[in-house]
Every structure is written in structure tokens, then in C-alpha cells.
Amino acid sequence: MLSYFIRRMFYMVIVLALVSAVSFYIVNLPPGSWIESYALELLAEGGEIADQAELDYLTQRYGLDKPLHIQYLRWIGPILTRGDFGQSFEWQQPVWNLIRERLMLTMIISGASILFIYAVSIPIALYSATRQYSIGDYVFSFMGLIGLATPNFLLALVFMIVMLKVFGVSPGGLFSPEYLRESWSLAKFWDMVKHLPVPVIVVGTAGTAELIRILRGLLLDELEKQYVKTARAKGVSEWRLIIKYPFRMALNPVLSTIGNLLPAIVSGSAIVSVVLGLPTTGPLLLRSLIAQDTYAASSMLMMLGVLTVLGIFISDLLLMWLDPRIRYERAN
């Protein structure tokens, strides 16, 4: 078992090294650099032509004249040695300061969305599978298809209109204006909790609909299995045996997708965050990609990579905990 963990850690390091190189490469793939987009922006804003000497100075200072692999090493080196993600060109401040709070808020929204997805879809899937082709099953399937087919941002817009027209509150953002500049406190946290439902429902709807479909199908398969009949023949009550046997079997594929759920939610919520004005990493990533803010963009992609790899690792641990066959296989 220990050797499995060591091997696993080793693979994770390799994967993360590849992720860092690829994300740095992709961010630098579009022609030009931040210097050019900076010059263009100056031109567009004030009509003044940027001083060539200043641009040259910036190019040199950020090392943008060096070959790409040198730039990569200048970026990754400080991360590995000091945990320093470098300076954002665009915002003129350390990348870590820029993304720290947004990363946390992203994880809060994603975590709450995952909980929402599980809390809603598991009971519905259990109901639908045990009462296949009942009216309730059809109603949930119909709603699920609508949820699956509705684009997130559209749902976000609808929610904003409803909140504004019906309840008279602006649902944008994650904080009330008075807390926006405040540092963290219990009151601010509570304010955030009150703002969470709208983004969580918007982000979680598609995932909920998908999970209902997956889980219902898996449960229907498992309910036909012989071991269910065995348990029934022992006199175990219907609900008890469903939870103990087929439901636990159906959880396997669900748990193994936790790792994929995280990046899907993070990238999927980027557009929603723009629409709802949420201070998550999504809008910042979009902005820094447009501005070719290399360090900020690569660092954020890198962080998402880390989260994904960790998520998959966690889901693997959960699977091993849940399924003795996998445990047995991995141990040998």
C-alpha cells in the first residue's frame, strides 16, 4: 500500500511538471506579448503613442526578449524555490496576492455547488430508479433534460431578472457593497453565505441534471443484480438493502468523477461569474489571457491543474476506501 502511495506521488509530480510547461506554452502561443497589447491599449485609451524606450525597458525587465524556455524557467524557478508566482504585468502586483482570495472564493463556490449537486441529485436519482416509469420519474427526467439543455449564463440572467423584479435585490456579486472593501469577519462571511444560493444553483444545475441521469442509470443496472435478490431473500427491508448494496455500488463511478467535477465547475463558472459579477478566478483568467499577462494566466492554469490532480487523488482514495476490489488490486 505504501509503495502505491509513493508511486502515486511520483506520477503526480510528473503530471504537474507537464501541466506547468503546457500551460505556460499555451499562454504564450498567441502572437505578440503583453507589451504589444499594453501599447495598443494606451493608444486606444488616450490616443498617445507609447514611448518606445519605455516599451523596450519593460520588455527587458520582464525578460520577454528571452527565448521561451528561459522565460519558463524564470517563472517556474521562483515558484518551486520560494512559492513566488511572480508579478502580474497588468495589475502591477504579485500574482499570488491577486489570485489568493479569488481562488478561495472559487473553491467555496465550487465546493458549495458540488454539495448542492449531490444533495439534490442523489435523492432524486434514488426515487427515479426505484419508481422507474412512474409519473414522478417522468417529471424529474423532463426537468433534468431542461436543466441539462439550459446554458448557464442564460440561467444566470433569468435569475438576476427574477431577483431584481420580484425580490427587489441585486443578485450580482458575492458581497453586499458595504462589505466589499472590508477584511474578513463573521459578518462578512454570513453576508457571503446569503449571496451564495444564486451562483450555486446556476453553476450546479447542469451538473445536477447530469448526475441524476448517470446515477439513475447506474442504479437501474445495479437493482437487477443477483446480490440484490440475495439480500431480499434474506429478508432485508427494501430501503435498507438499496442503500447498502446497489446505491453503494452506484457511488463508485460518481466518486471517481469528483476530480473532473472541479475543473469543469471552475471553467464552466467563468462565464457565469462574468455575468453575475462574482470575484472568482474565472473572469481574472479570461482578462489575463486577453491581456497576455503571462505570469498571472499561467499561474492560474497551474493552480487549476494542481486542484484537478489533487481532486483525482482524493477521489482515488475514496474509491479505495469504498471498494475492496480496488484496494486489493492497488495493494498488490
Binding site: Y227, T230, Y245, M249
Partner: peptide, 14 residues
């Protein structure tokens, strides 16, 4: 009580 045909699938693997 009952014994089933398939000893492979009659027990829950978990």
C-alpha cells in the same frame, strides 16, 4: 432460505 445459482454474483463484492 434460498441458495442461488451464481456464486460469483450472489454476494455483494463490496
Amino acid at each position: 432460505a434460498m441458495i442461488f445459482q451464481e456464486p460469483m454474483t450472489s454476494f455483494s463484492p463490496l
